[in-house]
């Protein structure tokens, strides 16, 4: 069914920008939308919180006022999603990287300080860990942090983390766990010979009650950490930033999760956040071009901008300048194979 045959109640002409996508980017996208709505003659954009995957599904459904103009995401768009977009005529997409979000491992202020390595994270959270002999895997026997690494406190491992539907979870397994996993030589060698097995060893989280899926609501994790000083929680940096009076972040590979450490890349677990824009909608939807200008302005995403105040970690100035230029000229993404 096309927009042209739609009945009268369909949006004949939309006069506001329509954004869908990740619940991680939602707190940032909404701030830009609100400032844009206040400071410009255009209406405030509508921002739906659908999750990254759900956002791309809506975004790639077609071109026209019924479909979103922008999809934001806490990961890059997948080739399969690009193909789906392409199949529906959404072929020119502008990719905008807006900054970074750190993923922190935090516990209550009352509990001991913890400093983790990637290997610690892998040995604490993976379903299977290497056994005595090379090539052998055993179900994760580690119950205490001290089992994982004698330098860590003798504290029962209890981790509250994101469910598999979450982008934070993808980042946890792909960055922290996989790097820890690759410290084992024979597993690392699997990466080239048997990538599927490698991924399944490195990216499967244990399911014996030690890792507790705590839902998408990060505030809830913070509350649970307050109530349970033994537990460690995994969530986005902005929630740590807002709850410094209750929880503290664990150092990863010796680096504390601070704004500066994430910005300069020394804190290892962080991910880029993206906005994807339909080129065909620019100059058709009123305000879309101006919205992009607001998004890529230094007062929004700069070091002193209002997004950094909300916990978004800005990109280096040179990279920001480059992205802003690409957005101004609406340079579409290069699709693999073209």
């Amino acid at each position: 069914m096309t927009a042209a045959s739609a009945p009268a109640w369909a949006q004949a002409g939309r006069d506001y920008v329509y954004v869908v996508g990740s619940s991680t980017v939602y707190p940032f996208a909404t701030v830009v939308a609100e400032r844009f709505g206040r400071g410009s003659p255009y209406k405030t954009p509508k921002i739906e919180s659908t999750g990254s995957g759900g956002g791309f599904k809506l975004f790639c459904d077609g071109i026209g006022v019924d479909y979103p103009d922008v999809s934001n995401s806490s990961r890059r768009i997948k080739p399969s999603e690009l193909a789906a977009c392409d199949a529906n005529g959404v072929d020119e997409i502008v990719e905008v990287k807006v900054g970074y979000d750190g993923i922190v491992f935090a516990n209550s202020l009352e509990s001991p300080e913890i400093s983790l390595t990637h290997a610690d994270i892998y040995y604490a959270l993976a379903r299977q860990v290497p056994g005595e002999r090379e090539g052998e895997l055993v179900l994760n026997p580690n119950r205490y942090w001290s089992d994982v690494n004698p330098a860590l406190p003798e504290l029962r491992i209890e981790v509250l983390g994101p469910p598999p539907t979450s982008g934070t979870r993808d980042e946890l397994v792909e960055q922290a766990m996989e790097r820890g996993c690759n410290t084992v030589p024979w597993i690392l060698s699997l990466r080239d010979t048997d990538p599927d097995r490698h991924a399944s060893i490195c990216q499967t989280v244990r399911e014996d009650g030690v890792f507790i899926e705590a839902g998408e609501n990060d505030n809830l994790i913070v509350q649970k950490l307050e109530a349970n000083p033994r537990a460690l929680g995994i969530f986005g940096f902005s929630f740590l930033d807002q709850n410094m009076a209750k929880v503290k972040g664990a150092a990863v590979e010796g680096v504390e999760p601070s704004f500066e450490a994430i910005a300069d890349g020394s804190y290892p677990v962080s991910r880029p956040l993206y906005f994807y824009i339909k080129r065909a909608h620019v100059d058709v939807i009123p305000g879309l071009r101006a919205f992009l200008r607001e998004l890529t302005s230094d007062r929004a995403w700069g070091e002193e901008g209002y997004l950094s105040e909300r916990g978004l970690i800005p990109m280096p100035a040179a990279e920001r300048r480059q992205v802003a230029l690409d957005v101004r000229d609406l340079v579409p993404m290069k699709v693999a194979g073209q």
Partner: peptide, 15 residues
């Protein structure tokens, strides 16, 4: 049905 969204303006009609 897309009602979990950030909407600043107070709706004026059913659509």
């Amino acid at each position: 049905i897309g009602m979990v969204a950030f909407i600043v303006d107070v709706p004026g009609s059913l659509s």
